[in-house]
Structures are given as C-alpha cells and as structure tokens.
C-alpha cells in the first residue's frame, strides 16, 4: 500500500489552474483577434506573432539566466504578448513590437520576480515604453494611411476625430463601433467582440466582474457631466464604445496580478481607472487614456489592499490584553 500524506483539504477544484486562467483570457480574445484580422489583415497576425514570440523568448532567456526553471507553460508570457500586440497601431514598425515585448517582460514582470510579483501590468509597461520612446511612429498619424486597401485604415481614430469640434461630426455611428469597422489599435475597434469575450471571462470568474463594471461606471458618469459642461464633443455613450475603454476594462485592468485582491478594492480600482480615463481623454494632450489610467491605478494597488482588509464575519478576533 502506497499512500500519501498531506494537510487538508484533500480535494481541489480540478478545473482550476493558473495556466487555465491565462488560456481562458486567450480564448476570450479570439473574437477580438478575429475582428482585428478582418479589419487590419496581415498586420494583426504579424504583430501578435512577433509579440508572443518575443515575450516568450524574453521570459525564457531571463529564467535561464536567473537559474529558474525555463518554461512559459503558465502561458502568462504569451498572453502579455497578445495584449501588447492588440494595443498597438497596425502601422507600428516591427522593431517597436520587439522592443515593447522585451521591455514588457523584462522590466514589467521579470525584474520584480516573475509571475505574481509585478506591480504594474506588463503589457502596459511595454506599451508605455514604446509610446513615449517612439512617439513619432505611434502618434495619431500612425493610424491613418490614405492608400490603405481597407476603408477603416484611411480614417482617423474615432477619439482623435472627437477631440476637435470641427471634425466631431465625422465621429462614426454606433454600428461601426460595435462591429469594429473603424480605425484604432489592433484590438480595440469592435466593442461587440470585446464584450463577448469579456462577459465570458466574468462568467468563468477568471476576471473579477467588479473591475470592468467599475471602469464603465467610473467613466460613463464623469463623461456625462463633461458632455453637459461642454468639455467633450461626443456623448458618454460614444466614449464608452470608442477607443480602448472596453478593451482596457475587460482585458487589461482585470489582470489579477496587478489589481487588488479584495472585492471592495476591486471596485475602487475599477472606478478609479474609469475616472482617470475620462480626465485624460478630456484634459490631456492624448486622445486616449486607458494605458496611463491603468498604470496609475496599478501603483496604488498595495495601498488599496491594505485599506480594504475585510472584517471577518463575527468581527475581528478579540486580542486578549496582556497576552
């Protein structure tokens, strides 16, 4: 008889696994990737391929050098690659994808100690690096290409259009925003595809539903005020479906590692991102604010965790005096 001994519980949920969580997210991104390929064609596949490959290689090399078991089998490295690729403009030069991926994994994740240790969302760290370093190649003009074969690529992105009252009437209607027939980063154009995958993630409990709900509420309410006050040319509804707000809410902010652990913390985190997105969109020089909003809120996650320690059912444990 060969039996093992362990501390209870002896039962575990067989369907749960760190890798399964990452695979869930990649599955949830399939509709978004499909739309991306439909709109942007080979550019989409090219960038996803390069980013996934570079992210995986960077992680493998780092682990090898650091003497850790060299493997990307938890799928978190490749996932960072997919998200980073989907947040880039279609015209991004290849060296941008490569450098962004290396930076995302090396500085965004591995330097903190690898999976589970990083403070910031690795994909957003990588994107922030390339956006600031290669501003010229990735600015608003990078999205527009007059001679492009697809219609969408000849237009400015919806949020760029919306910034100027003079061009605001060119803002696309709801239908193009839903199905994704507009310009934008590779993965942000179709709200419908994002919602499809995002709701799947929330139902699977891979993503905490409080975060996307918080982001949406946190963005829509100030957007409505800004609209009333005349700070923005488009409606709160347009803000919700344009740009990467939904992509950020469902796929970037919900990264478990860089978001709070308590339900209350998740609410504050989500609402904070939503509000910051609207402030950045309205008052900064960027048409879009998801990346900076997520990174800013990432930085307060340890504080949020500490502020929102739940009280145990039945109250805190009474500490005996003089014990």
């Amino acid at each position: 008889m060969n039996v093992s001994v362990a501390s209870s519980p002896h039962f575990s949920n067989m369907k749960q696994g760190t890798r399964q969580m990452m695979v869930d997210v990649i599955l949830a991104l399939i509709p978004t990737i499909a739309v991306s390929v439909w709109i942007f064609g080979w550019y989409s596949i090219l960038h996803i391929g390069i980013c996934v490959l570079t992210c995986s290689l960077t992680e493998l090399v780092w682990k090898k050098l650091a003497g850790m078991p060299a493997s990307v089998s938890d799928a978190s490295g490749p996932l960072t690659g997919v998200i980073l690729a989907l947040s880039l403009p279609w015209s991004a030069p290849i060296y941008v994808s490569v450098l962004g991926s290396i930076f995302a994994i090396a500085i965004g994740k591995m330097i903190f100690g690898g999976l589970g240790m990083n403070l910031f969302n690795p994909a957003m760290v990588g994107r922030a690096f390339v956006m600031l370093s290669f501003a010229g190649a990735l600015g608003a003009s990078a999205y527009v290409y007059d001679g492009a074969p697809a219609d969408a690529l000849t237009q400015a992105t919806p949020l760029t259009v919306a910034r100027d009252v003079a061009t605001a009437q060119e803002f696309p209607g709801l239908w193009p925003l839903l199905i994704g027939k507009t310009n934008g980063s590779l993965g942000e154009t179709s709200s419908l595809a994002i919602l499809l995958g995002g709701i799947f993630l929330c139902v699977r409990r891979t993503a905490a539903w409080q975060i996307p709900t918080g982001v949406v509420l946190g963005a829509v309410i100030p957007a409505a005020f800004f609209e009333l006050l005349g700070f923005t040319a488009i409606t709160a509804f347009d803000h919700l479906f344009a740009g990467s707000l939904l992509f950020g809410a469902f796929f970037i902010a919900t990264d478990p590692v860089s978001s709070p652990i308590t339900p209350k913390g998740k609410w504050i985190f989500g609402v904070g991102i939503g509000i910051l997105i609207m402030i950045l969109r309205t008052f900064s020089s960027y048409p879009e604010g998801v990346m900076f909003a997520v990174l800013l809120m990432n930085s307060v996650v340890p504080l949020l965790n500490r502020w929102t320690i739940p009280t145990p059912v039945g109250g805190s444990f009474p500490e005996k005096p003089n014990a």
Partner: peptide, 19 residues
C-alpha cells in the same frame, strides 16, 4: 504549486471573509 497570481478566488470563497 505556482506563484500566487492574486486572483482573489480565496477571498471570494472564504465563508468568514478572510484574505
């Protein structure tokens, strides 16, 4: 065992509201 990804599933299941 992998690293904790801070998903919060333990918090979501704890009947006593612990972390």
């Amino acid at each position: 065992t992998t690293a904790c990804v801070r998903c919060g599933m333990c918090v979501d299941t704890c009947p006593l509201d612990l972390v």
